[in-house]
Structure formats: C-alpha cells, structure tokens
C-alpha cells in the first residue's frame, strides 16, 4: 500500500503529498515521474517526482487540482493510501556541469524543477532559479528552492511579489545582467514553456522543457503521449518527458491536451452533483 505519510497545502488547490513507496524511492531521479491510481475506477494520472527520501522510503509529489482526478487526489489525507503508484518512469534529467544554468518553474511546475535544480547544483553548476506564478499566493516551495539554488528570481503576473511579468521576464532580467547562461530548464504550463523556448531560440541557449501530454500506461505501450519533436514522433513517457524545447511542436501538443475537454467537464459535473449530495 502506498500510504500518504505527510500532507502540506502549498497554495490554493495545490498540495504536497509524501508517499510511502520504498522501491520507487530507491530508484527515483530528477526529471522522472510516477503514475498513480486512487480507486478502481480512476484514471492513471502522471505526476512528476518532486523529492524522494531513499532512507525513509518515500516519494514526494505536488499536485494541482485541475479536474476530477487531480481534485480527488488533493483531498487525500495523511494515513490514506493510493491503489497504484508506478515508477520511476521516463528518462532522468541529464545532469552534468554545464556552468551557469537557469531553472524556471511556472506555477506547479516549480515542484518538478526542484530536484533538477538540486542535482544541477550538486553537479557544480551555478543555479539561478526563477519562480513564476499568477500572484504571490501561488508562489510555492520558495524556501525549498532557495535551499537548492544560488540565486532566486520571483515573478508574478500581477506584480504582487517579485518582478511583475511572466517567467520570460525573469529570464530577461537575468540576461540583462550580462550573465552567460549555458542551459535552461523550463517546466510549467505548456504556454509558459513555449514562450520560454520561443524567447531563447534566437539566443541559441539550450532549453529543456518537460512535456506533460495525456498519458495512459506510461511505458511506451499506447502512444497517447506522443509529441512532435522536430521531424520525429517521440513518446514522452519513455523518450522524455524532457525534450529540446526549441524542437517541440507546442501548438500540436496543446491541441492534443485539450482533446477530452468535453469529457473532462462531464466528469467534473458528475463529481459536483456527488459532492452536493454527500454535503461535501
């Protein structure tokens, strides 16, 4: 059984869950993800590994309630457990000493950036992390990110904390200082990763993005997660989830992500009725 040993609410609709999964913890590396299933009728939901503790045998995930399944997952309490917890899946981030690197996390994307920033710093990089969110309340894991970064830049869309603007403004601000950036990791909403990639493409700065397409098995069996990378079709679950952001076809990826919007709304509707009935 995969028991929740710790829960923390990080922001509205964003929670951190530390889950007992010793075998997964033993192998987990930065950049990888797990797939979870809560109940017998649940979807298989991919979630990035935010942290792992090999001694304690736990894996930490951070999730945002965006639809039915993720909302239910955020309602898990300490002591509750998950039916399935598969991983670690996907390719780990290629960690080496690049020099000076930027790790950019947008919204809940700060969670998957965390272990990457840490590993990059441990490998000797000078790590500047950019945390971006809509407003101050949605900036998560600031303390944890400070601990694994040499510098922190914060941006909010409304200017309620740090610089006013998007993640790209944060990148701009760092570049304006005349620093030479050797590589960038950008993880967050698809639109944010696209704008960072578009921004760095003309500058020729190597930019890795972590794709989060719809997945089913996560083992390369179904092809649901395929993304167009340059001329090639790649399976995000086995070849990724990290890809060269300058080659990814984001427009196609965003369309593919929206394919089940109607069905997702249907389930949400059903869920609301259920909640009202049960008085939750």
């Amino acid at each position: 059984m995969y028991t929740v040993v710790k829960k923390r609410v990080l922001a509205k609709a964003i929670v951190l869950l530390e889950i007992e999964a010793p075998d997964v913890a033993k192998k987990a590396q930065a950049g990888q993800f797990v797939i979870v299933r809560q109940f017998d009728n649940s979807e298989r939901i991919p979630l990035t590994i935010m942290d792992y503790d090999r001694q304690k045998g736990t894996v930490t995930i951070v999730l945002q309630a965006v639809g039915y399944s993720s909302t239910l997952l955020t309602k898990l309490e300490e002591g509750d457990s998950l039916l399935d917890f598969v991983g670690p899946l996907g390719q780990p981030t290629e960690i080496k000493n690049y020099g000076t690197v930027l790790s950019v996390g947008g919204g809940v994307g700060v969670a998957p950036i965390h272990p990457i920033a840490r590993a990059l710093k441990e490998a000797g990089n000078y790590v500047i992390s950019i945390l971006a969110a809509k407003n101050k309340d949605l900036i998560i894991l600031e303390k944890e990110m400070r601990a694994v970064s040499d510098e922190i830049v914060i941006t909010t869309d409304d200017g309620s904390y740090g610089l006013k603007g998007f993640a790209t403004h944060g990148v701009q601000a760092v570049l304006d200082r005349g620093l030479n950036i050797d590589a960038i990791w950008a993880i967050g909403p698809m639109i944010m990763m696209k704008s960072v990639a578009d921004f760095t493409r003309p500058l020729g700065i190597k930019t890795f993005v972590s794709m989060n397409p719809i997945m089913v098995d996560g083992t390369g069996m179904c092809g649901a997660c395929r993304v167009q990378v340059g001329e090639e079709t790649k399976f995000a679950c086995v070849h990724g989830p990290e890809f060269d952001g300058h080659l990814v076809d984001f427009d196609l990826a965003m369309k593919r992500s929206a394919y089940y919007r109607k069905e997702e709304a249907m389930v949400m509707e059903k869920y609301k009725c259920q909640c009202q009935k049960e008085g939750i």
């Binding site: 092809g223 395929r226 593919r256 394919y259």
Partner: peptide
C-alpha cells in the same frame, strides 16, 4: 498521424 483522434490500437 499525431492529430487528435488518431489512436494506436493499443491505446
């Protein structure tokens, strides 16, 4: 072949 609505039989 990567358009929405193109499935592998496995999926």
């Amino acid at each position: 072949e990567n358009l929405c609505g193109v499935y592998s039989a496995n999926e």
